[in-house]
């Protein structure tokens, strides 16, 4: 009886997964076609000759490798930066006293809720002012600390018991040492959430990289993907090939780290 239940569950999962992945399978399958026209009816789909040429072309016609590197580099630096700065700021908000603390924290949270479109122009002016336009700095610096990250870290640190910190302070540990040796190891779950959130947001970020850079050297993958769309037409097979390739590094990263992510989220054990 139990066994049948298991099998039913398994079949059910497979079905749900198929439903989930259908569009993506379709995407992958179409990326093997040579022509756009292959998005035709179901019947035609099996008559197509399959080829890997689109993947080769993505690399030969545009410096896609460079774009991938840019995306990975930016996303990794930004994620690391967030882990560092958000813990710092979050810790300060949770534990320190300073003037206007409350209103400052509120304003941080508020930023979370503002649509980015109205922030584009002021931010652009700022980047220009610093002379960072079309450099990695424009892609990295504004995002090194995210309001969401600060919010999450602050909320998490605030409810941690203070005893350990006090003990460390009595032992003569400096603030940085307390934060990195005592507090952060307890914050792994929050850090993991921040890392996933920031990494994904950055990996898929389009509008700002597009507006803040101009040369091919600084192009990231989402911007490159947008260039596969012409005025009225879409280069489907190559768009699909490129977006498949763009997904791959994250997927590998996920498969590689998923146990750590899931475990990391919990080693701190939620304090109830």
């Amino acid at each position: 009886m139990r066994k049948i239940g298991r099998i039913a569950l398994f079949v059910f999962l497979i079905l749900v997964l198929l439903g989930t992945l259908f569009p993506l399978i379709w995407m992958f399958y179409s990326s093997l076609f040579s022509h756009t026209i292959s998005l035709a009816s179901l019947a035609d789909i099996f008559k197509q000759k399959l080829t890997l040429k689109n993947y080769a072309e993505v690399f030969s016609q545009i410096p896609f490798g460079k774009f991938l590197f840019n995306s990975v580099f930016v996303a990794v630096v930004v994620t690391l930066g967030n882990l560092f700065f958000c813990s710092l700021v979050g810790y300060a908000f949770a534990r320190k006293r300073f003037p206007c603390k409350k209103s400052l924290f509120v304003s941080v949270v508020l930023v979370l809720m503002i649509p980015v479109h109205i922030l584009i122009i002021p931010l652009f002016i700022l980047i220009k002012f610093f002379g960072w336009y079309d450099t990695y700095l424009a892609l990295i610096a504004p995002w090194l600390v995210s309001p969401l990250g600060i919010f999450l870290m602050r909320q998490y640190i605030e409810v941690l018991p203070k005893d350990l910190e006090e003990a460390a302070r009595i032992d003569g540990a400096g603030e940085f040492k307390i934060l990195f040796r005592v507090v952060l190891p307890l914050c792994k779950p929050a850090l993991a959430v921040v890392a996933i959130q920031v990494f994904l947001a950055n990996w898929n970020s389009f509008l700002f990289p597009f507006i803040l850079t101009s040369s091919e050297n600084m192009r990231t993958v989402p911007v490159a993907l947008a260039l596969f769309q012409g005025y009225q037409t879409i280069d489907w097979p190559r768009l699909f090939a490129a977006s498949g390739l763009a997904t791959l590094p994250v997927l590998i990263l996920f498969l590689f780290f998923q146990r750590q992510i899931v475990a990391g989220l919990t080693t701190g054990a939620l304090k109830q």
């Binding site: 597009f210 040369s215 260039l227």
Partner: peptide, 21 residues
């Protein structure tokens, strides 16, 4: 030479004019 995209080129142009660049 800088490349624009049809779907989002408009934003980029607007922002550039708005910020004198």
């Amino acid at each position: 030479v800088t490349d624009l995209t049809w779907t989002n080129g408009h934003e980029k142009i607007v922002v550039a004019f708005a910020s004198n660049s």
